[in-house]
Design a protein around this nucleic acid. Sequence first.
RNA 1: CGGCGUGUGGCUCAGCUUGGCAGAGCGCUGCGUUCGGGACGCAGAAGCCGCAGGUUCAAAUCCUGUCACGCCGACCA
Length: 581
Amino acid sequence: MKVANLVGQTFKEKPSDCVIDSHALMVRGGFMKYVGNGIYSEFPALRRVTAKIENIIRKEMDAIDGQEVLFPVVLPASLWEESGRFESVGSELVRFKDRNGSKHVLGMTHEEAAVQLVREYAQSYARYPFMIYQIQRKFRDEARPRAGMIRVREFTMKDAYSFHTSQEDLDKYYELCFQAYNRIFQRAGVPEVVTVKSDSGMMGGSVSHEYMLLTPVGEDSVVMCNECDYRSNMEAAGNRVDNTWDGNISEELECVETPGCKTIDDVCAFLKSDVKASCKAVVYQKNIDDKFVVAFVRGDYEVNETKLRNLVGGEIHTAEITADDCLVAGYIGPYGISDEAEVYIDVSLKGIKSIVAGANKEGYHYTGLDLERDLESVQYVDISKVKEGGICPCCGKPAITVKRGIEVGNIFQLGTKYTKSMNMQYTDENGESHYPVMGCYGIGVGRLAASVCEVHHDEYGPVWPITIAPWEVQICCLRADNEETKKVADQLYKDLMDSGIEVIYDDRQIRPGAMFSDADLTGVPIRVTVSPRNLKESSVEITTRDKSVKDIVPIEEAAGYIQNLRLKLFADIESHVEDYK
RNA sequence: CGGCGUGUGGCUCAGCUUGGCAGAGCGCUGCGUUCGGGACGCAGAAGCCGCAGGUUCAAAUCCUGUCACGCCGACCA
């Protein structure tokens, strides 16, 4: 391929709407073009990257006996009505009617389609276990697309679905898939992807993990322990709080006037008390009947809405409290609260002897509240967000750290949620019917490409790992108007192509600065510079995009040198790929 | 869905306060000089100033509405 013919344009200036580096570089480098909100087209350079990622995924899925299939993008609503998700999923699911008025959806995930595909086939236990997967476009009408290709509405995803006759068999396969995923990310050149326990959300099921690429621009919070292997995403992270400090002593319960103090900071400043010994109320309402749900956490903690939602057992939304309600906004406390509200008390309040809390009366707070002494009964639940420096729920040391990450993949144990609702059964050895248990496994292809760029780039452009780079070698022919130079570069291009190396060749008659800048933006790992200056020494210059190699090599040795360097770069990445245990 | 902001050649933006011929740089086309980190000169093409309505002799500029996009939040496999 010649740069001169490559469809896609580079830009010198950063587009104004690009906030993160990978987005700006991928637009500037001619990798992608904006089409609409959360919708992008891929130019050839990016398509080559995503195709390579897809092939890495394909190989690893096939290695664990996956079989590639293809589901439709448009699915009849009736399928989603079977599983109940036509109603339960929010407006991310695009629903529409065809010309006959029958309802359809755009596939945002394909559990239903997977069950539909195999429920007749897999009626005998002898067919199990098996896994099917596809690599295909999905559309999710996200509330807020952002960060270029990292969070989009239309995207390519590999989604896999496995079917088993027992939980034990699913466990075994889940572990296999867990390892296959590690290998995929290692092969894609990002061994720094970490796995975390996660909340399974709308997918249902119990066990699930997310694969997170740690980067400050990530939109998810990852909770990690510096002392042990504990890792979790914020939603699923258990919180432990140490409430043994000097001065945590009992005091008398007293109702004091706190005029105009509606926030925790106001109250603590007014009463000159420690935030640690305060109680914050966060009020929600149930979506079904608007009943109030009051969450009490220690003043310096935040509510983890996912954990609360799981406890409440239904959807909740932030409450709007009016004067007519049973709650007094700004002065809500656990002592003397209306029994019309559902109350949850967080573990962060456990063991505090003297708490400042709202008095459920306009302008008043209690001091000296001891929940275990003053309330009839206290049941502590875990509904707060973990904090930096918190206590690890695994090893018990105060070594929790919170980092940002991009979720590049996830795996779930679905159980029988879909096989039951969609009535998929098989007959076992004894002639009895059972519902198979399922696992599902996803990887966002475009998001992975963008994430790799986000983690591997410098100020001039992406630094693609050779396994997913759009090309392996780039030839820069400086002074292509010079006959001798052009001849050598042409010959090298031909030689490399003949030996099966993926080469992009820049023989445009542009100034060196512009050519180097464009090459940096393309991010090809190996660069060969052919120029009159090097030819004086009968040599060419060979460098790597990450600047670790910079050599002057005689022309006749160049092709061999490049092939060796190329193999070395592949081997470097392969050395990080773990074998199956 | 709430808050803030932005819409002017392909890209980055000025012009809007105080209404008066639609501008610059990059990019693009041609010619010439240059040539190892985004050169320079000359000549050129390219604009429903987001859209609709209003005020006015006159609107990119003022008013009203609307749409789109971005950021923060809510939400999210």
